[in-house]
Amino acid sequence: MAEILKYDRVDIAYNGRRVVTGVSFDLQPGEILGIVGESGSGKSTVIKAAMGLLGPSGTVTRGDIWYKGKDLPDLSPAEMRRLNGPELGMIFQSAGASFCPIRTVGAQLYESMTEHESVTKADFTHRACELLQKIGFEDGMRILNSYPFELSGGMQQRVGIAAAMLMNPSVLFADEPTSALDVSVQKQVVEEMLLVRESFGTSIVIVTHNIGVIGAMADNVLVMKDGQMVEYGETRQVLDDPREDYTRTLMAAVPRLRRD
């Protein structure tokens, strides 16, 4: 099967200082790839490059990011805006912060949807409710009519995922989507992302420092350290039988619950 997203020897620099070196990976349709690493490893920078979110001083100085025949770093900001949303979706660490506090969730989702396609309010409501139901919300209407502050942090995050999925992107990028959440809610968010993949066949790239989250949902893992790839392979192999010393140190440091 042909990959949907391909990173080919990507270097990224901020203000001329290189922070990511030689990152390559392929993402198949429906695949979940986890990128793990500690702070400063450049893991978030890697996905920001695909979304055009590197900011004014960041550049992909070498390498290519191929998506449907387009080399993403060479696209103009206008072309990038057309892709962001309908093709490439994004979830952030705290979805709550990206909602405007004084308008209902529904109104904001509708607005972001009309940016990309012409859709009537009734049509939108129908689609949104259907989607919310699919990813586990029983009463979609109530969610659409609530204000962000009326939802808990975990709910906000799940609504954030729903918001990204409304435009049915082929690839969903998630930057530390569970890090601000309590463990009991983390599990719900992970389950919701798995449900998204099952229902829509979306490919997901999830960046996190939480090895537990990776173990629970990723097919493949890319381990990063100091801007470089340390290990890239199938999740079970990397987590249970790492080849590299650094990965071994990392895995040994993760506190694991002894249950038996």
């Binding site: 080919d8 203000n15 001329g16 100085t61 290519d64 060479d74």
Partner: peptide, 12 residues
Amino acid sequence: MTPTVRKPKIIK
């Protein structure tokens, strides 16, 4: 295929 090389943006 060799990877594309681009000039870094430097903001003073």
